[in-house]
Amino acid sequence: MDPRIREHAEVIANHSVDLQPGDNVVIDAHPVAEDLVVALHEVAGDVGANPVTTSQRTGKRQQRAYLRAADGDFDTPAHEQALIEETDVYIAIRASDNVTQTSDVDPETSAAYQQAQRPILEERLSKRWCLTQYPAPANAQLAEMSTEAYENFVWDAVNKDWDAQRAHQANMVEIMDPAEEIRIVSGDTTDVTMSIDGNPTRNDYGEHNLPGGEVFTAPQPDSVEGEVLFDLPLYHQGREITDVYLEFEGGEVVSHSAGKNEEVLTEVLDTDDGARRLGELGIGMNRDIDQFTYNMLFDEKMGDTVHMAVGRAYDDTVGEGNVANDSAVHVDMIVDMSDDSFIEVDGEVVQEDGTFVFE
């Protein structure tokens, strides 16, 4: 086994989830990530934790079969809910043998399934949890990289000095945390303002998302005004969506379009009322993630980017007395801020063409 896999497992256990003796651990992984699953079992054995492995969340082949056979009317599965309720630590490992496995599942069916899974998602988020990536060949192919190059890319981004990354990002937290308003401008296609007054800014340095590399907060749901062109693509429900355009009035998406698979975007926005409002604003700050790979876990952390998510706001980014946007979905989309762009906080430019004022 590549020694970097064991190092990856130790970063998850020691840095991300603080694995303790007696912890009940669910490891949710595609079979292609077996080496990392084995390494995590070794670490769990060393610590005295109790691991069990499922592929409920990330086993896309069986999920495709189920969703294509189902009638589209779903209930929250009580036995799956019970498993997560009895869990102390939840570790999800992204990896795939076919990244477009669910591309022929009806978007309405996928949206209905997500709604039914929402109580389980909320329960997972109440635990110590980590979402990470195993460098599987299919993910390397999607990133247009050789398997070896992708392995190097993933483990360079994961197995790093997270204390140093935290200190770098703390500069931006210090700017944003007391702020009232943020404006994002990129070219002549993106000019959007939002209030973050009273909502704390969080420093993501590899605790829940591994790799980390962003600072993020929640906009006030009704405050978002303007337009955004997300000029980097994303994969959702096994489909590529490109050139997403959203126009906001009073916090709500009032107009939208996409260059490709617009119907998938429409289904996301129609999931529920909260899906038409922003739940997150994030600033990418991980300079070791230096290329786009069609993997939001990495892409949203790239330096020179901003991402916004329609849908659910994370509870720890909503201040006391403020409204948290509520939705069954949370879909991130990215704006390239490397050229002809700036971030303005309370009227002061804090990043221009990808460079922060403190760099």
Results as ranks from 00 to 15, higher is better:
Arg202Leu: 08
Met194Arg: 09
Glu214Phe: 10
Phe298Trp: 01
Ser257Pro: 09
Thr293Asn: 05
Leu265Ala: 04
Gly251Leu: 00
Val244Thr: 13
Gly259Val: 00
Gly198Arg: 01
Gly250Gln: 05
Gly284Leu: 04
Asn203Ser: 06
Gly274Ser: 02
Asp299Tyr: 04
Gly303Gln: 13
Pro233Asp: 11
Glu267Val: 15
Glu227Cys: 08
Asp304Pro: 00
Asp243Trp: 02
Gly198Thr: 09
Pro233Leu: 08
Asp188Pro: 00
Gln220Trp: 03
Ile241Pro: 02
Leu269Gly: 12
Val185Asp: 00
Thr190Arg: 10
Asp204Ile: 14
Tyr245Val: 15
Ile289His: 00
Gly212Ile: 07
Glu247Ala: 11
Leu232Gln: 13
Ala258Met: 01
Asp231Thr: 05
Glu249His: 07
Glu247Cys: 02
Gly259Ala: 02
Ile241Gly: 04
Pro233Gln: 10
Phe230Tyr: 12
Glu227Arg: 12
Ile241Lys: 03
Val264Gly: 01
Leu281Tyr: 01
Ile184Ala: 10
Arg239Asn: 14
Asn203Gln: 09
Pro211Ala: 09
Glu280Lys: 01
Val244Gly: 08
Val192Trp: 10
Thr266Glu: 15
Met296Phe: 03
Met302Trp: 04
Gly279Val: 02
Ser195Leu: 08
Asp243Ala: 14
His236Asp: 11
His236Pro: 00
Met194Ala: 14
Ile241Ala: 08
Gly212Val: 01
Tyr205Val: 06
